[in-house]
Amino acid sequence: MTFPTPFSAAPRVLCQVVSSAASAARSSAVVTSVSTTAMTVRVDLVSSATVTVQLHWQAIEP
């Protein structure tokens, strides 16, 4: 995901899965890399189903 405004240094990122779908209820979001302009998030699901999840995130300048 690309940040709307670049940071001067890589920010600290908080991220969580927010979804009402039962199959996404047991999932977790893992931020795997962060730069000044973007972050990569991996979503791990307990089920093998393919689902669409909504992520809420916050990036904080260090």
Rank of each mutant, 00 (worst) to 15 (best):
S27T: 11
T52D: 04
R26E: 01
V30N: 04
P4L: 10
M1I: 13
V18M: 09
V18E: 13
H56P: 00
S48E: 12
L45Q: 09
T5D: 15
T36G: 10
P62F: 02
V53H: 01
M1H: 09
F7A: 01
Q16R: 14
T52G: 10
M1Y: 09
R12N: 13
A9N: 11
L55M: 06
H56R: 13
P62S: 14
A25D: 03
L45C: 14
M1K: 04
T37Q: 12
Q16T: 07
V53M: 08
V30L: 09
T32P: 07
T37W: 06
Q58S: 12
A59N: 04
V30R: 08
S35D: 11
T2I: 15
V41W: 03
L45M: 11
E61H: 09
H56E: 15
F7R: 00
M39V: 05
L55Y: 01
C15I: 06
A24W: 05
S23P: 00
R42P: 00
L45I: 02
V51P: 01
V46E: 00
T5K: 13
M1W: 09
V30E: 05
R26H: 10
H56T: 11
A49M: 03
V17N: 06
A25G: 08
V30A: 07
S20K: 11
I60M: 13
S47W: 09
L45H: 12
V18Y: 02
A38W: 01
R26K: 14
I60L: 14
Q16D: 13
V13K: 01
V43E: 00
R42F: 00
T36H: 05
V41Q: 02
V41S: 03
H56W: 04
V17I: 10
E61Q: 15
T50L: 02
V17S: 06
P62Y: 06
R12I: 15
V34F: 10
V31E: 04
A9K: 14
V43R: 04
A49G: 03
Q16K: 13
S35V: 02
A21L: 13
S35Q: 08
A22Y: 08
V53R: 00
V53L: 05
A38P: 10
Q16H: 10
W57S: 11
T36W: 07
S20M: 09
S27E: 01
L45V: 03
A38N: 14
L55I: 11
S27P: 09
V31P: 05
L45K: 15
A59P: 07
T50R: 05
W57D: 08
V46F: 05
A24T: 03
A24C: 08
T32W: 03
W57G: 12
P4Q: 06
T40M: 02
V53Q: 02
S35W: 05
A38T: 08
T37M: 11
I60Q: 12
R12L: 15
S48L: 14
A49P: 00
T50E: 07
V43Y: 02
T5H: 11
M1N: 07
V30C: 04
L55R: 03
S23E: 08
E61A: 14
